[in-house]
Amino acid sequence: MTRLPDPDTTKMHAEAAEAADAIARQFVANATVIETLAARLRAQPPRFIVTCARGSSDHAATYGKYLFETTLGLITASASPSVGSVYAVAPKLDGALFIAISQSGKSPDLLRNAEIAKASGAMVVALVNVADSPLAKLADTVIPLHAGPENSVAATKSYLCSLAALLQLTAHWSGDAALLAATKSLPDALRDAWNEDWSSLVSGLRLARSLFVIGRGFGLAAAQEAALKFKETCGLHAEAFSSAEVKHGPMAIVGPDFPVLVFAQDDDTGASTAAVADDFRSRGAPVWLARPGASGEGVLPLPTSPHPAVTPLLTVQAFYRAANALAIARGHDPDVPPHLNKVTETV
């Protein structure tokens, strides 16, 4: 049997721990491109926004949707890559801002959809970790993620860098003073989140077979990302739901021995999300709640967040450390999940 590494020696642990420094570098390196793009978008506002991504990058797009819609009031939709690449249909995107998010920037379906968007008159912006990738060369504007090399199959710092890039763009585009201030304080807040103790989650899920991960609003993207990482690194089946959507059927299977991880925001969605956690706990389900300022049974600590839009990044950063440790506890190497490759190219 292959000997598993210690949790603190995995590539996933090392790379996730680098997220705060990577984002600090990213903010400095991208200052000019962000300010230039924000000025252009203020001068020529798009009619709507379309995102295009897969996997963890699509979870980042979910976060972007809530940022854009709540801060800018611009309807944001997620494009299905198969519409352009498989069905060969060209959506009408004239006047849209088309944001493609990809670590490698070379998946054929994303490239095809970006080509279609550009041909239809959309402004194409690419968020990529490989700054000279085919997607970057095709885009009107490139926002490099500056995450640096990421060798673990599980994306960690590149995911957080994607969220940070969307945050920086939205803060400068909107000129929102509170969001701009929160952006500046993000790296330090991430360092605090990395040091939080989520060992109760690790011990509680070591023998689990399935669970729900719940979030809402800004926190939905964090729930989606956590559910993927449970499957990918821990061999643990997990499904992500909005705390509103879970009431429409899925909650019927929650009871004793069915664990639930809840990410509640420090905003107007927080109380209702925490109430869902209480409901599940009353049924005998093992429940863990992550919410800034929360206390009590099953609470996973988080540092004080400088802004609700920053909270999902802190939640995910604390989660990544726990997921890495949980993978080892369950007998999995988080760096080399079975049947998966670092770069997935879909057509």
Rank of each mutant, 00 (worst) to 15 (best):
H339N: 15
P7S: 02
N195D: 10
K342G: 11
I253K: 10
L111R: 10
A275Y: 02
D335C: 09
I23F: 02
F280A: 06
E69W: 06
P7E: 01
L97P: 01
D58I: 02
G64A: 13
S272Q: 04
L41V: 12
A77K: 12
D197E: 06
P259W: 09
A79V: 08
L167S: 00
N151Y: 07
V142P: 13
S185R: 11
E35H: 09
T71S: 05
P91A: 04
A20N: 03
P301H: 11
V33Q: 12
T183Q: 02
L67Y: 06
V50E: 11
T344L: 11
Y320I: 00
V262G: 10
A24F: 00
Q44F: 08
L207K: 13
S104K: 13
A208R: 09
A309M: 07
A181S: 02
I101Y: 05
F241W: 14
L37R: 05
A165L: 06
N341E: 13
P149D: 08
P149W: 09
Y87G: 03
T32L: 06
G219A: 14
H248M: 13
K247L: 15
P81M: 10
V124I: 07
P250Q: 12
S102D: 08
L74E: 08
E245A: 15
F27A: 01
A264D: 06
A19N: 01
V28Q: 14
G255N: 10
L110D: 10
P303F: 00
G255T: 15
A38R: 00
T311Y: 01
A139E: 08
I49V: 15
G293H: 03
R283T: 15
L201H: 09
W173E: 01
D6R: 15
V124P: 10
D8P: 01
L205Q: 05
Y66P: 05
E35F: 00
A322R: 13
G84I: 08
L166G: 11
L228C: 02
K184F: 00
S203C: 04
G331W: 03
A165F: 00
L313M: 14
V153L: 15
T9W: 04
K11G: 07
P306F: 00
L93T: 09
F212P: 00
A177K: 12
S272W: 02
R209S: 14
S210Y: 08
H172V: 11
D176W: 00
A277M: 10
A323D: 09
Y87P: 01
A79T: 02
L302Q: 05
F218H: 01
A323F: 02
S162K: 05
A61W: 03
S174W: 01
I23V: 13
A29N: 03
I214C: 06
L201M: 14
L205N: 11
A100L: 07
R40M: 12
A271C: 12
Q26V: 00
L326G: 08
M1Q: 06
T233F: 01
A318I: 07
S107Y: 01
P7W: 01
S133Q: 02
S104A: 13
K229A: 05
R209D: 12
N151Q: 12
R321Q: 14
L300Q: 04
G148F: 08
G175R: 02
P144F: 14
